[in-house]
Design a protein around this nucleic acid. Structure first.
Lengths: 114, 114
DNA sequence: TTGATATTTCCATAATCATCGAATCATGGG
DNA sequence: CCCATGATTCGATGATTATGGAAATATCAA
């Protein structure tokens, strides 16, 4: 993953409706949700949601597939992992990080997180 | 961490110079770097870099402390962890995620990541 | 106090982004 | 073919953001 892709991904997530849509899709799991279901679930007009979902897809954060008349969006979990890897790459210059730094230990243990 | 804080953090990182600065600070470790060192390291005018560092600080991603004439910025590693936790919260609706989904397993193992 | 260094604030300009109704495109049933 | 449904594209408007030189603010040394 290069800087440009990372910036697109972060930019895609840095917006109220897109962040909410992404979380909805993360919670929906690999099955995904139809575009209309996302729009309705978030109370956003279809054309606006379409714009936002397209941005998420373009950023590589979600995958779209057509299923009959619906277009199903699903979170791409690997993309999120790649994002985090990029941010924390070569943390502390490769030195062993202390427990307070915690960039080499498994992140995202809910208890460790503010 | 609430949605607003997450959006500010993601928005702060979704910019070429800020992403580069943040990575530089992550790699620098807890000691941090002076504002001028970051600007010089990235070849960005001081006033522009100051603007960007202020955004990172405002988003809670970096910590600033004065040391004599310099202002030292350092990555706040906990903030990044909180960010990821928010994104993957209640992944797959709480069901056990498969190995291909990997949102409940330790992320950021470089080998698992694209 | 004077001078040098480090950083930030100010400001105007340029560029990018979000919104959403209406029109358009794609699919499938009868 | 015709109609209904689900989704995207278009387009104009308003809002936010990035840029960098010049001026202002802090700190320190002599």
């Amino acid at each position: 993953m290069n800087a440009d892709a990372v910036i697109r991904a972060l930019g895609a997530l840095a917006q109220e409706h897109r962040l909410a849509a992404y979380r909805l899709l993360v919670q929906a799991g690999p099955e995904g949700l139809a575009a209309g279901a996302v729009a309705q679930g978030l109370g956003v007009p279809a054309s606006s949601m379409s714009f936002h979902l397209a941005q998420l897809a373009n950023a590589g954060l979600v995958l779209a597939r057509r299923q009959s008349r619906s277009i199903i969006y699903a979170a791409d979990y690997a993309a999120m992992s790649a994002l985090m890897a990029y941010m924390t790459e070569n943390c502390c210059g490769g030195a062993e990080c202390g427990p307070d730094v915690a960039c080499s230990s498994p992140l995202l243990q809910a208890k460790d997180v503010a």
